[in-house]
Each structure stands twice: as C-alpha cells, then as structure tokens.
Design a protein around this nucleic acid. Structure first.
Lengths: 155, 155
DNA sequence: CTCAAGACTGTACAGAGTGTTCACTGTTTC
DNA sequence: GAAACAGTGAACACTCTGTACAGTCTTGAG
C-alpha cells in the first residue's frame, strides 16, 4: 500500500516511543486525535503493522549465540515435513526455503557454543536432511530494522 | 535472567493480545494489577522485552522479495566500514559478521526480482567487498518467533 | 525460632486517555 | 454541482493508569 508523509511520521514516532498513545501523538504532530487512530487502524488493516506485541531479545533470555543453518533436503522428502520438524524446536526462530545449493535456511539460537551443538544435532535429527552447513553470527553490524524502508517507500 | 511460569504466561498473553492493558490482563490471569505492571517493568528493565513498538511487514510495504547475501571482505578493509555502507541502504534490514567462508551476512528485501538486482548492485558497490553470493528466500516455513524459546527457557 | 525483606493482594483516589458520536470544512472525482 | 472522502474540533460516558497504603505470605539470615 502507499504511505504518505503522515503515515511515515506516525510510524517513526510510535517506533521511537510506542507507549505515548493516540492523544499525545496528536498533540506532538499537531493533528486531530481521530486522525491518529484512523491512520493507525488503516496501517493495521492493510497489514503494514502486523502487531503491537512486545519485542523479545533471545540474548536476554539466555541465548546469546545465533547461527544460520543451510540444509539440503533428500529428494522425495518434502520441505514441509522437515519444516514441521524444525518448528518443534524452540531454538529454531525462523525457517524458509531458499534458492541455490541449500534447500532450507534457518536461524537458530543457543545458550553457548556447546549448546549450539546440541541444537544443531536436534535440528539435523530428521531423515529428510542429507547435508547441512552452519555459520555462526559473531557480531551484529546492523540490528534488524524496517523503518528506513518505510521512509524510502513513501517517497 | 530467569523467568517463572507467570512471566511466561504474561508474555504469551501480551504477544497474543498486545492491547489488552494491565487491568484486563490481571483479570484474565486472576492476579493483582500491580503484579502485572511490576512483572512487565521487570521484563523491560532486564532487557527481555526490548520494545513495544509496532511490528512492520516489509511485504506489505511493497517489498515481498527477501534475499540473503554473503559477502567476503578484502583483507585490510574493515568489517565496520562495509557495515556502515550497508547501513545506508534502506533495503538492507540486517547485517552481521559470521564465521566461515563469508565475512558478512545480510538480509535484504526488494520490490521484485528485478529490483533485487538493483539493491544487490548498490550493496556490492563498495571497494571493500571482493566476493558475494546471494540466495533468495522463496517461502517462509516458520515465521520469526521467540515465544517458544520463552516457554522452554523457564522450565 | 524470630525477624526482616521481598513479593503479592486488595483498596482507594485523582488524573488522563479511549471509544464514540456529531456537525462542519476542505478536496477530489464524476 | 453532488457525492465521497479525509480531517477537524468538541463533547460525552466510560475505563485505565499511576500512585499510595495497609495487610498477608514466603523465604532466607541470624
């Protein structure tokens, strides 16, 4: 959908200070409160805002180690079957199918490098997986963000 | 930090229905309102909850294509310099350094496969990058989630 | 055993925000 | 010109929040 400057400003503001509420936001931006709620409703209905839930930090939950697995699936075994297997592992935070040599990509976290081995073993413990490779994330250069995209999408 | 069953229940509840507020949550769980706010404060102070900001969907913002780039950095060029370059590109949502053959990993989004080429060209437009490989994400098997980790961390 | 600290409960109050409605004003579109 | 749409400003009742306080319960230290 198309965002105008006010949508971008609202997303900026609520990302920076999520708890201000519609009334305070309307005061800050010099617009009517009804406009704020109408815009936010629209952004939510259109799917741009998927939720207002809390953002959780795996590191603060005791899982500071992040790794990316690339899995190759045996011919005949469905991606879905392996995906469902991976979904049962709490340390697997994200899985998607990809182009190229690998077939599945997933993000996993662990309590330590030793624990990572355990997690990987569990993830690979499915007969549909024939090969895998692991890279460990060392440092975050750019933390996950979407906001710059919002700004650039509106222009 | 250590989470008990109540913390997990609260995170579950507020992830499912973020807008209910402390009073309604206290009614649902049969506990005092003060306990809800105290627990949420503690979760926020300890870093488990990093923010209450809106979750934005790149696809709904017109960028349905996701790809992962693996970059190899020229000896002598710092990761940081390349990282800063990547940070200036709105379509680059996340960057981290990794072990293995590649040196930097990043998640990028684009409006289309054609647009992805443009984004990649811009990302690679830095003299510090000597090699790169791209995989395109086709389908999401497990959408990003942290909640299962919360549940398993408490036990 | 006893005491102190910490967490939770239940209550209360004032202040503030929310959901909702309505009349009015521009702007755009046909 | 009429209709549709988005925004304004005001008003209402209702609800939630921040804050405070006294009481209960559990736990660990002396």
């Amino acid at each position: 959908m198309t965002l105008d400057a006010l949508d971008v400003t609202l997303l900026d503001l609520f990302t920076a200070e999520p708890r201000i509420g519609a009334l305070e936001a309307s005061r800050r931006l010099g617009i009517a409160r009804g406009t704020v709620t109408a815009r936010l409703d629209r952004l939510e209905r259109s799917g741009v805002i998927t939720s207002w839930g809390p953002h959780l930090d795996p590191a603060a939950l005791g899982h500071p180690v992040t790794a990316f697995l690339t899995l190759e699936i045996r011919q005949g075994a469905g991606h879905d079957v392996v995906g469902e297997h991976l979904a049962t592992i709490p340390e697997v935070l994200e899985v998607c199918t990809i182009t190229g040599a690998g077939d599945l990509w997933c993000r996993v976290v662990a309590r330590s490098n030793a624990d990572l081995q355990t997690v990987i073993d569990r993830a690979l413990g499915h007969p549909g997986i024939v090969r895998s490779s692991t890279v460990i994330a060392l440092a975050t250069q750019v933390p996950y963000r979407v906001l710059p995209l919002v700004t650039s999408s509106s222009g």
